[in-house]
Write a protein that binds this DNA or RNA. Structure first.
Lengths: 229, 229
DNA sequence: TAGATTGTTAATCGATTAACAATC
DNA sequence: TAGATTGTTAATCGATTAACAATC
C-alpha cells in the first residue's frame, strides 16, 4: 500500500454464510414492510430470525452503511439494497432439466416466480417425454441447450435428472454457457471455477433431521439447520 | 476430573457440519460399494467429494475408530456404521402436511423412500382437499395429528403449507408429540428445544446462486454451497 | 521390513459475539 | 440534550488443515 490514508484495497468478500442470511433478512424485512413498519433495529431483525444483533449489523456492513445510529434501518431502502446485492432485482431466465416427479413439481412451485426466477425452457432426454409440453413449454433434448441459451438468454439451470446422468448434463450445461446450476441430483458435481453450483440435497437434510431426533432428542439443543425455512 | 487416567467425560458432540458430511460419505461409500470396491482411504473418499483427507478422518473420528492404519476403511463396515449413526438403519414414519404443488411432489419423490423415510399420513386443512386421497393415502385435518401419532407411530413431519400457516401447524405438530420437522415453508419456525427443525429453503438457495453468478462470475471461486447435491 | 494410512495433537484460519466510541 | 443504535475493533469461539507418531 503506497498511500496509507487512501484505502484502495478491495473490500473483504462476504462469506457464504452471510449471503444465506441476507436472504433471510430480505424476507423478514418484506414481511415487516407488509405490516406497515418503516424502520427496524438490528436487534429487532435478529430477534425475528433467532440471530444475534451484532451479527445482523456485521453482515450488512459487508455491503455498505445502510443504517442510521439511533434510528436503525429504513425498511424500504434496505429491501431495495439487499435485492440489488443478491441480484433478485431482475429476471433470471432458467432452464429446468429432467421432468420426473421433482422436476415437474419445481415447475409449479410459486416461490421461484416470486423471486423472479423464470423457468423458460424444459429439457429431458427421455424420448417418451419429448414432444410433450408442461405448463405450455415444450420438452427438448439437451443437445438444444446452446441454441436455447442464445435465443432465450438462459443464465441458470436446475438439474433434476437421476444421479448417474447429472455430471453429463452438467457438462452440457456448462459448455452451453450457463454460469449457475441448482443441483437436485444426489451426487457431487465438478464444474469449472467460473461456474457456481448450489446443491439442494433433500436426503442429506432428512438424514440430518433423523440424526438430531435419534441422537439429540431431549438434550435441549434446538437444531435449526441451514437457512431458516 | 478426579481420576486423570480414566476419561469419563462424554465425547465431544459432532458439529452439524460434520453430520451433513457424514451423509455425503455414506452416499459415496454406497456408490464405491456398488462398483465392487472393498476398501477406501480418507484421501480417496475426500477426493471424490472435494474434501480434505484430514477432514474425512477427523469427521469419522467423532464417532469411533473405523479405519485400519495402512489399509484405510472397509467400505461395507463403514456403511453400516454410518447408517447406524445417522439413524437411517430403521424406518421413519413421516407425516406430510400441505398438499399443494410442492407437497404432492415430495410425496412422489423416490429419494425419501430410499432412505427409509416413509410418508404414511397426509394432512391438509383445505376442505376441498379433504376426502381426496393421494398415493392411496387419505387427506385428513391436522386436528387428527395426535391420533395419527399414536396409531401410526409418526416421528417426523414435513411442513409444506404456506408461510402464514406454518407456525400454527408447527405448534400442532409439536403438541401431537412429533420431535422432528422438515420445514419447506418460507418462514422461520420457533419450537421447544427438544424438537429439531431442518429448514429447506429453495428461495434462499436460488438467491445464493443468483448472488454468486451476479457478483462472483469469473472470480475463480467455485461456490459449492451446502451439502453437495 | 518398507510403504501406506490411520487417529490425534498442534497450528491455522475463519466466523461469531462483545464492547464501545461515534452519531443521529 | 439524553437515549438509542449504528459501524467497527477486539475478544472469543469453533472449524479446518497440517503434521506426525502409532500401527497395520
Amino acid at each position: 500500500m503506497r498511500e496509507p490514508h487512501h484505502d484502495t484495497s478491495s473490500p473483504k468478500p462476504a462469506p457464504k454464510a452471510v449471503v444465506g442470511r441476507l436472504s433471510l433478512y430480505l424476507r423478514q424485512l418484506e414481511s415487516f414492510g407488509r405490516q406497515g413498519r418503516e424502520t427496524v433495529s438490528s436487534s429487532q431483525l435478529g430477534q425475528a430470525l433467532g440471530l444475534n444483533d451484532a451479527q445482523v449489523r456485521k453482515d450488512l456492513a459487508y455491503f455498505g452503511q445502510f443504517g442510521q445510529p439511533g434510528l436503525g434501518y429504513r425498511i424500504d431502502d434496505l429491501v431495495v439494497e439487499i435485492r440489488g446485492i443478491l441480484g433478485v432485482d431482475r429476471d433470471w431466465p432458467t432452464a429446468l432439466i429432467g421432468l420426473g416427479n421433482l422436476g415437474r413439481a419445481l415447475l409449479g412451485y410459486k416461490g421461484f416466480r416470486l423471486r423472479r426466477f423464470r423457468v423458460v425452457s424444459l429439457f429431458d432426454n427421455d424420448p417418451r417425454k419429448q414432444g410433450h409440453a408442461f405448463d405450455g413449454l415444450p420438452v427438448r433434448h439437451t443437445d438444444e441447450l446452446p441454441a436455447a441459451v442464445a435465443d432465450e438468454g438462459l443464465r441458470l439451470a436446475m438439474i433434476c435428472v437421476p444421479a448417474d446422468a447429472a455430471q453429463r448434463v452438467a457438462d452440457q450445461v456448462v459448455s452451453a454457457g450457463i454460469r449457475g446450476i441448482l443441483n437436485f441430483a444426489p451426487t457431487s458435481l465438478f464444474v469449472p471455477p467460473e461456474v457456481s453450483v448450489v446443491a439442494v440435497d433433500l436426503s442429506v437434510q432428512l438424514e440430518h433431521l433423523a440424526y438430531s431426533v435419534h441422537n439429540l432428542h431431549g438434550s435441549g439443543a434446538t437444531d435449526d439447520v441451514s437457512a431458516a425455512g
